[in-house]
Design a protein around this nucleic acid. Sequence first.
DNA 1: GTGGTCTAGACCACC
DNA 2: GTGGTCTAGACCACG
Lengths: 129, 129, 129, 129
Amino acid sequence: MFIIDKMSRTPIYEQLISQFESCILSGDIGSDGQLPSVRYLSQCLNVNPNTLQRAYGEIERRGLCYTVPGNGRYLAKDALERLKAAAFKQTEELEVYIRELKERGVDYDTVVGIANKVYEINERTVEEK
Amino acid sequence: MFIIDKMSRTPIYEQLISQFESCILSGDIGSDGQLPSVRYLSQCLNVNPNTLQRAYGEIERRGLCYTVPGNGRYLAKDALERLKAAAFKQTEELEVYIRELKERGVDYDTVVGIANKVYEINERTVEEK
Amino acid sequence: MFIIDKMSRTPIYEQLISQFESCILSGDIGSDGQLPSVRYLSQCLNVNPNTLQRAYGEIERRGLCYTVPGNGRYLAKDALERLKAAAFKQTEELEVYIRELKERGVDYDTVVGIANKVYEINERTVEEK
Amino acid sequence: MFIIDKMSRTPIYEQLISQFESCILSGDIGSDGQLPSVRYLSQCLNVNPNTLQRAYGEIERRGLCYTVPGNGRYLAKDALERLKAAAFKQTEELEVYIRELKERGVDYDTVVGIANKVYEINERTVEEK
DNA sequence: GTGGTCTAGACCACC
DNA sequence: GTGGTCTAGACCACG
């Protein structure tokens, strides 16, 4: 489901975009591929319709959905592929981020340790590999 | 020495803070430990003195330097240690970041591959280890 | 025969009008001049009957067809002439369009080149002329 | 200057975008390259700041200008080139448009005649060429 | 019912 | 002063 934190520093519309992308990735969009309407969601989440419109607009601009005017919004067929391509591009940012940590004195083992933790890979597994 | 990108989306004062921290880490602060004056730097970088004041204020708040009224700002003796402690805390953010990538379908090898790249560790080294 | 793109940004009813006009121009309307019924077409094309009604209404308003209550819609006898007159009027829009391109730095040769391409006129033909 | 037709069917924000592009093409942007502020223009044109924000947002997305937060918007250096590239792409639409006219019975000479008119080329010039 | 656009007015961060 | 975000509420076109 959708969780919006109105007090967060990250704009609501960006939170919405993230949540939509998560839903798409997890397949939480109805099998007909129709996305919830602006009005409906704005009531559900107690968010202004304009803000939702903006979020939807960005999602559409990214090619993740398309609009049938007067009918509704639908998931694009290649939405999943596009998302994964975007994720790949995001790994470039990860590189910058890690490089910054390195400059600040964080060592290699710490970084990989975090990766292991996230992917639930324990040390032994790594060695055996 | 200092490079400020006024077109960047990250606020100038944050850029300044980062640059100061980099300098401290690399030891690029004069041996007497005196930091450049607000007026001098604001001219050098063509940045509003208020902005510099804000950056210095934040640095001071982090205990990285202290002010001698009428004399100047000086590097705190434990600045380096504080910075490293801060870096450690930042690794928590890295965890969040990687977790997000994982959700988006980026796999473990990709993440570790980037870490290897940053720390200039080639695959063989890892295996031998 | 009819191709409706529901994802298109141009309203369905306008697409319908265009398609009707194309059919009239190409003579693809049955020799008796009867147009398909709203109900039949709405099923065929999976389009809301209201939308079809609207399209037919506009076509009628343009004098391209007339309704025989309880019997059906028939092509007007002067439909072709009316269409050509309308096309002539549309050339005014073309002028506006080209003028806009000119302002944006597109030169004469490019424009004429496109016209040649559409009318399948190669350069030599122009010269000989 | 800017002329906004609030009664037009084309959204105000699109009108604004067009006007900006015209100004850029004609060099009507101050030599320092700074664009008028949202607030100022919104007062001048009696248009809501949000609408202007939207127009600026799109212009920025097209790479025609960039924002220095808290300082203003400035023309991108390659704005002119980008605009011309966009115009070139637009000629593809022209082809579609002319093809449609052809289908409706408009002949080649009419089309070229309009091009001549717009580019102020009389027949003799063409022949001599 | 759907999405698209706009206004009026507010609050915030940054410079 | 600047831009960025948001809300509340309105109107329109389309289906």
